[in-house]
């Protein structure tokens, strides 16, 4: 499939995240020892340094912590999308991650409630994005 946008290089570390996303679930890494939830993936728990971690689905609800509107395409594949909006989301379960704000980004407001939506990119890759509630 032709897609000039950068695709994630799936590794043993984050395969669980992409497996869940393909099935329409947002997941974060959770330490089996101390319960700390985080994303992106870490080889050990950054809280207790524990080795054993699982990918656990989260609610997909969060709040908007910030956003930025791209008017420059750093990859040719994004040129047709300009302007597009990247956002910073604090999940209800704690982790903070970057994604895209889709739907009506012009209504963005700090602290606004958001929920995850999924966009299938390839047979293997589905990207979690966020929409204002």
């Amino acid at each position: 499939m032709s897609n000039a946008k950068p695709l994630p290089v799936i590794t043993a570390l984050d395969r669980g995240f992409w497996d869940h996303a393909r099935a329409g679930r947002l997941a974060v890494q959770v330490c089996r020892n101390c319960g700390h939830a985080h994303f992106p993936a870490s080889p050990v728990c950054p809280e207790c340094l524990g080795d054993v971690q699982d990918w656990q689905p989260v609610s997909g609800a969060g709040t908007l912590e910030s956003w930025a509107e791209f008017h420059r395409a750093y990859w040719p594949g994004f040129a047709a999308d300009l302007p597009y909006t990247a956002c910073l989301i604090r999940l209800a379960e704690g982790p903070v991650l970057v994604s895209n704000l889709v739907g009506n980004p012009e209504k963005a407001k700090l602290g606004a409630p958001v929920h995850v939506v999924f966009e299938k990119i390839t047979d293997e890759i589905t990207l979690p994005k966020f929409s204002l509630d």
């Binding site: 791209f70 895209n100 890759i125 990207l127």
Partner: peptide, 20 residues
């Protein structure tokens, strides 16, 4: 890790901070 969402460059990070 954020490349698939088109989030890249130090300028974008500072845009996000200034928006906050």
């Amino acid at each position: 890790v954020w490349d698939p969402w088109g989030f890249t460059s130090p300028g974008a990070s500072h845009a996000m901070m200034f928006r906050r």
